[in-house]
Design a protein around this nucleic acid. Structure first.
Lengths: 220, 220
DNA sequence: ACCTGAACACCGTTCAAGT
DNA sequence: ACCTGAACACCGTTCAAGT
């Protein structure tokens, strides 16, 4: 009930009172945060548009002003998660040693650690069923850069004579299958039947990564 | 379809006419078959109790006479799929060579092939979210036997001097992570972004398995 | 004993109507 | 411009009532 003139560069910043929640705020952002929280609490399946709306204090239909579908909301959540994932991997790489194979190991370790510690967020960026990855440019880009990074590191290791002769593309896919498989076994609850308890998992992750690297390394 | 009943089997008290559908038949079996078909068509998420009921020609509530919940139906489907999976692996092993490492390779190959050719059925037995694996005895048993089979084969390979010194438990987990990861990459739609086209996938599967085996094998 | 059909509490999504 | 609130078509699940 305010006739506050519509100045062209209007910034509906803040009111002294808060008569109605989120009529003014960034609902899009609030919905993404609520969904991120829901993913953390109960996994991707626990995300419902209605629950996100409830937590944001808006009506069931309101989110559809900002996201055309549940999938679009999930995609926004995945973009956020993917950003964090990539940031952590690049941070780990910045602190990595100079030799290429050692850096390859750091890449794998950072991948595994983030996946182990953020299983539900990892799942949402890894599983195809939550949104259409082909239409998620930011995620595809982040992903492609990670793949290229691994490719370069592996090529450098080979050039430095650290690898035994092999098809590098296959080494790369095998390495990815290994770490993805391990992360997925965690998400999918396989470790109890493998006798790997929670705290042990990260040490085991390191062990199987080293086993793989020994397998591809040139041996004296 | 299934016309001639097995004479040794029990009493199929059938009517000449079929006045009402499935009032007499084995609704439980029909529901499982419908669900298996739905899994094949659209993946596990495509299974709904109501749709299975629809295909069986019964009312929405009828399935709950036979399964206490959707999860229980999914578990029955998974039990069937797991049975087929295990049967194929054991068939492959029966035709395997005598040397342990060669048999280990056959195990891995059979695992990968079945997973590649039955992705949606593989997912349902691999992912925890469809039912409670702790309460699915048949599945846990089948699974444990597969694990033990791999364990024995690996131990034999080691005893035969085919492996380089390593923690066999870790070799086994790494091997599983590799094949599970590869199968999952297929299910989760990762291969397009890895430049692996459909028909190529099985050849790549074989290649990365051989790469892994070369890595763990003792070398002259 | 098994099934029906109407309920109930949830979804995702749409849309006229409000501010 | 953004949100409400009632709709609609789906779920899973329950339960009295029918055969």
């Amino acid at each position: 009930m305010r006739s506050a003139a519509k100045s062209s560069a209007a910034k509906p910043r803040r009111r002294a009172t808060a008569p109605k929640p989120y009529h003014h705020g960034d609902l899009r952002r609030v919905l993404i945060d609520a969904a991120l929280q829901l993913v953390g609490e109960g996994g991707a399946e626990a995300v419902s548009v209605r629950e996100a709306a409830r937590r944001a204090g808006v009506s069931p239909g309101a989110p559809f002003r900002h996201f055309p579908s549940r999938d679009a909301l999930m995609q926004a959540v995945a973009e956020e998660a993917q950003r964090r994932f990539r940031a952590e991997i690049e941070a780990a790489l910045a602190a990595a040693p100079g030799d290429p194979l050692g850096r390859f190991r750091c890449l794998g370790l950072a991948y595994l650690r983030w996946a182990m510690r953020n299983p539900t967020h990892f799942e949402i960026i890894s599983s195809r069923r939550f949104f259409d990855h082909d239409r998620a440019d930011a995620i595809s880009r982040d992903n492609a850069e990670l793949i290229e990074l691994t490719e370069r590191t592996l090529a450098e290791a080979f050039a430095a004579g650290q690898l035994r002769p092999a098809d590098l593309k296959q080494v790369q896919i095998a390495g990815r299958a290994l770490v993805y498989g391990f992360a997925r076994m965690n998400i999918d609850g396989h470790f109890p039947r493998w006798g790997v308890a929670g705290p042990e998992a990260e040490r085991t992750a390191e062990a199987i990564l080293d086993l793989f690297i020994e397998g591809i390394a040139s041996r004296p």
